[in-house]
Design a protein around this nucleic acid. Structure first.
Lengths: 130, 130
DNA sequence: GGTTGCCTTGACGTCGGCGGCAAGGTTTAG
DNA sequence: CTAAACCTTGCCGCCGACGTCAAGGCAACC
């Protein structure tokens, strides 16, 4: 299939597919006229890329998964390199969750104090005669 | 004080201070020779900016806090606009925490399945003679 | 032959918070 | 007089995943 059809079936743009190719993630054959020519397997690859991007991976991290799929595995997750990336990403997410939790607590406290201060000021203002 | 001293006392760079000025967050007077001239209050402002940036705010969100400080309040948090931003940011963080939690669960499951699959394959390989 | 709709490569724009450099002016100390 | 250490404005670079032209080639249909 050509690039337009793949883009539509994968729910993305032709620009995106060319970008993935430039980054070495997708390798279409070329027709005699120079047109890119993708087989069905590439649809699967593009879906894998999109799914991992949506989870927060960058394209470099996704490379092992694509290689794993290309090696004939039913899932891109099962190869050692992929598992290593999954472990690392999980650790990164855990880390980020911690920091974001701390941020949440700080924001919450900051907000609570601000509101408390406003209540106080409001009371004092009402007490003050005119 | 001049820009170099403020930068050092605030723990940042002169480039950063000029950037904040370009974004309208800091307004130094100018000396006769054109040099920027900051008073003590600006140090406080810069600290406020830095603290909020560290929490994940962008410069536009920080503007109300700076205005609040400049209005003479002891904290940049207590003005209505600041409180509104705090509320919104807290909601955004909560939202992001939810999504990141979902991502974490997906990564965890994905990793577990990949490892399980590898165990299985490993067993089958050992069973197969030679 | 002309139009339409694919396709190609190439190159610049986006967003945010700066870093870094260039080319020059100012002030102070020696 | 000169060097050092400030300061000024201005402009390009960065990162990542693309969007958005521009200029042109190819294929199919009327």
């Amino acid at each position: 299939m050509r690039i337009g059809e793949l883009a539509e079936r994968a729910g993305t743009s032709t620009r995106t597919l060319r970008y993935y190719e430039a980054r070495g993630l997708v390798r279409p054959r070329r027709a005699a006229n120079g047109y890119r020519c993708y087989d069905e397997a590439e649809l699967r690859v593009v879906h894998e890329i999109r799914a991992l991007l949506a989870v927060g991976f960058d394209l470099d991290d996704i490379r092992p998964f694509v290689a794993c799929l290309r090696a004939g595995n039913s899932s891109g997750d099962v190869c050692p390199d992929s598992v290593a990336v999954l472990r690392r990403k999980l650790a990164e997410v855990d880390d980020y969750l911690d920091r974001l939790g701390a941020v949440r607590r700080q924001l919450h406290d900051q907000l609570a104090r601000a509101i408390a201060h406003r209540e106080e000021t409001c009371l004092r203002t009402r007490q003050r005669p005119e």
